[in-house]
Amino acid sequence: MYEGVLQNLIDELGMLPGVGPKSAQRIAFHLLAAEPADVKRLAHALLEVKDKVRFCRVCGNVAAEEECRICRDTRRDTHVICVVEESKDVVAIEKTREFRGRYHVLGGAISPIDGVGPDDLRIRELMTRLADGRVTELIIATDPNLEGEATATYLARLVKPMGLKVTRLASGLPVGGDLEYADEVTLGRAFEGRRLLDV
């Protein structure tokens, strides 16, 4: 136990995800030894992020303004919406440079065991976006785990009567891996989603 403000800092740092008591102590002593200007810059960044970052009113992605950069971009295809669980997934897909449509961030996935149901996600907002009839395809890019699949099933059931094309990201073998290490479910999905080689 340290005195006063130093212990406060260690306790606060220890509240961060993935930071245990030892790591919190190491970070605190690093900050203590750092230049005052560097620490001020970090403190300013922390305050600024809470002050300025908000959620896009259209898609739910993190944004510095009312709407995020992607929703403001008029060059993006407004007919295709890609549904993801978190803002982090938007960044991952953007890195591929394969998708030029817009996004919708649900804020999680349906997980009854954790008490998260459809009403706890931004599904109502998605239905409002789809209601104007401009969107022709909905790409469901929730995580390829059980909760993500259940969310995809729920969304597909909800959206299908609207006559939209509903697609799900392909599941299968990871690039760079060995076939023999693939589990039965992944390999089964890879077989289901096999494609014709056009050579």
Binding site: I110, P112, I113, D114, I140, A152, T153, R157, K160
Partner: peptide, 18 residues
């Protein structure tokens, strides 16, 4: 039981993605 609140009573038509 938290999941009970989300259990659907009647079976809906089975859904598969295109």
């Amino acid at each position: 039981i938290r999941s009970l609140r989300h259990v659907e009573r009647e079976p809906a038509s089975s859904t598969t993605l295109d």
